[in-house]
Write a protein that binds this DNA or RNA. Sequence first.
DNA 1: AATCCGGGGTA
DNA 2: TACCCAGGATT
Length: 266
Amino acid sequence: MVLVSETMLQQTQASRVAELLPPFLEMFPSIHTLASASNADVVLRWKGLGYNSRALRLRDAARAIVEHHGGVVPSTPHVLRSLPGVGPYTSAAIACFAYDVWTVVLDVNVRRVYSRWLRAQATTTDVAPEPELIALAERIIPRDAPSAWHHAVMDLGATICTARRPKCSACPLSELCPSSGTMHETVRLRRPEPIFRGEPRRLWRGRVVDVLRQAGASGMTLSALSTTVLGSDATDDEHQWLQDLYGVLERDGLVSRKGRRITLAH
DNA sequence: AATCCGGGGTA
DNA sequence: TACCCAGGATT
């Protein structure tokens, strides 16, 4: 359960996970049902969560757990780290929240809270170096309540000590925090995302996957898919662009071709 | 180190 | 409506 919810929480706000986690768990009530799910099964049930390849890695992790760990989610960060899609954050989070193992959990919220606590930060985007964050964490995480501690810090980071406009005046730690009221907001620049027909490529990717979700197991031909997504008046160049996009999705294991028919991958 | 990966929430 | 968002994998 924590394996699934932490994977979801990597990418989605907690309120949305609360909404989408129950139906997913209903479909895959055990690690074994998840492990035996096809790509299509898991991507179908991942709808609304985004980042479809993470759904595949989650299933791969379930398979590794069934095959190598007796069907029991490992409790040590080091072992968890070896699972597909489980990195530094998720491995620590599962050990901490599922087993109450004492470990340093660092996500963007925790990093931000610790950074502001360590010293007065000049801007809202400043973050202390990793070694300092770890050193602080090792000093202040209670030995007997790591799970409750991290829940509290994450909650503080999500509601009070926020990224852009921290509510220092409402913070219970403002009297003791060196960064309270000292930070000015900074704008961070992003590199523009690729655009097709005036819309982001990821949006078109989502449309292709969604059309194939609707198509079900019988799938559809590439030309039908292309016309459905692009409309009947699409140019040859646009059809070619979508075909290239299909190639990427196939490489990612999200879709597959059986003869002339395309489906969500099995 | 830089880039890719979705779709909903918020200013 | 424009912008903001997090962690893992890949290159």
